[in-house]
Amino acid sequence: MSAPSNPTLRVAARDARVVRCREICRDHVRIEAVLTGFPASAPGQFLQVLCHDPDDPAPRFIEWSDSPTPGLARPAPAEDTAWLRRPFSIADRWDDPDGPTHLEVISRAVGPGTRWLSKLRPGDTLDLSGPLGRGFDIPDVQRPLVLIGGGVGIPPLLYVARVLAQRGALDVTCIFGATTRDLLPVPLCQQPRADGVATRCVELPGNARFPALVTTDDGSMGMRGYTTTALRAWAALRADAASALICACGPDGMLRAVAGVTRELGMTCQLCIEKPMACGFGTCLSCVTRIRDERADGGWRWALACTDGPVFDRDALLEYAP
């Protein structure tokens, strides 16, 4: 008795099997799950992940038809149970030739839901809905492309890197930032340089072999400073910097800075934002952000991060307007 099969979306797929959990840096886990029948997805799209045990009837739904003791022994959810799903960018996705899809998410333990995720082990089940939202729109892979990720905003850019490599993009540079060296949630294959020269220091998924700059706020790894420090360094070495498309995801302050610098340097920019959301389907209307709309009163309207985004053109987002 499943829902109608939808070619673009799977909801409450309870058959995602966790096959690998890696603690990739302090507080961050990278979870790989395998499932079949997962629809096509694009980098920047996200999953709504159930962050409590789908097999545990306590926080979920008792089905009397399945229960040996109908209606009995149904404990209340623990106070720190994350009941609503939590949105996670797809950190990577690839498909085996014989069908099954591999999905990765990267989670930083900051609350009850992400703490629950960090306890997952191979063989566990992950209940997820997706792919949701609108991803990055990169029609031209010949232009210079810069992928900027900050902290736990890095994951969608990893998936972007895989797809760009598949599409034959050559002029791609990654800029990944963290507050300090042990909070960078990507594996390194060599020490990043501190002088603003991008090297192949970061392990990217698939066949992506793009150079990267790493920044830390405290200078404990790579360049001291912010991702915009590295963006300026990159642009200073390039005569064609203004023709670049910048794809960025990260904390609010970083996105604001990236919006400002890309505007100043005449670059095109798409930003992947995060807003508190309940559903992910455009029904709860929680995850609103103001976007420019000349036809609307006052020149703006509310847009939903879940269905209109989470990726927006920089100039549409009023919160990052000059």
Binding site: F61, E63, D66, P70, W83, C279
Partner: peptide
């Protein structure tokens, strides 16, 4: 209502449990 945010198919999924209750 709110449980739809976790699983939009929930109204259909619970039907099985309801008919099982009728049987029992």
């Amino acid at each position: 209502g709110t449980a739809l945010f976790l699983d939009p198919t929930l109204p259909l999924r619970v039907c099985e449990g309801v008919t099982a209750y009728l049987d029992r």
